[in-house]
């Protein structure tokens, strides 16, 4: 899905560096609020943050053994992410998901779907992809595959730029 940004809108950029569930939730909360406030929102996924938008495939493909192993340990997909604190072998993460459901807070998957509905754009860092042996086929919908200059060009026009 390709989203067309409004060039005149005020803009916000987020760098999602981490694959922690709690950080991803915070990032998408801000992305959804910014989009609802009429802002253009671009999220740059880099390093472990790429896990948030991975499809979670396990096949080796063209990857080196090291890259493949790294991919198996960091399979990604929103549903597999863990809390940065109190994960407790998954018990803490499960408890947090239960609490969020109880209080009718959107899951990460729901927040991501909402973000796309609202036109939030995804950019995947090609340097991190190369290091991890990932290709465009490893990701869900991404608007742009790019590097730091693309991020900085957007960030220099943005009024809110955060590293999460």
């Amino acid at each position: 899905m390709e989203t067309v940004p409004d060039e005149n809108a005020e803009s916000m950029t987020l760098i999602v560096f981490s694959d922690a569930l709690d950080r991803a939730l915070a990032a998408f909360n801000l992305a959804n609020t910014g989009a609802a406030m009429g802002m253009r929102v671009d999220i740059f996924f880099t390093f472990w943050g790429l896990s948030v938008i991975k499809k979670g495939g396990m096949e080796r493909g063209e990857r080196s053994f090291m890259q493949w192993m790294m991919g198996l340990m960091k399979r990604g997909t929103p549903g597999r992410l863990k809390l940065s604190e109190m994960n407790m072998m998954g018990l803490g993460t499960g408890a947090m998901k239960g609490l969020m459901k109880k209080y009718r807070m959107p899951s990460l998957e729901e927040s991501m779907a909402l973000a796309r509905e609202q036109g939030v754009r995804y950019i995947a860092c090609t340097t991190s992809m190369a290091m991890m042996g990932l290709t465009e086929d490893d990701f869900i919908e991404v608007d742009e595959y790019a590097g730091a200059a693309t991020y900085l060009s957007l960030a220099s026009k943005g009024s809110v730029n955060l590293f999460i």
Partner: peptide, 15 residues
């Protein structure tokens, strides 16, 4: 009612 940030804002924007 029963929804938390950012849902009231998102729903408002949609409406």
């Amino acid at each position: 009612v029963g929804l938390y940030c950012p849902m009231p804002i998102v729903r408002t924007a949609q409406a």
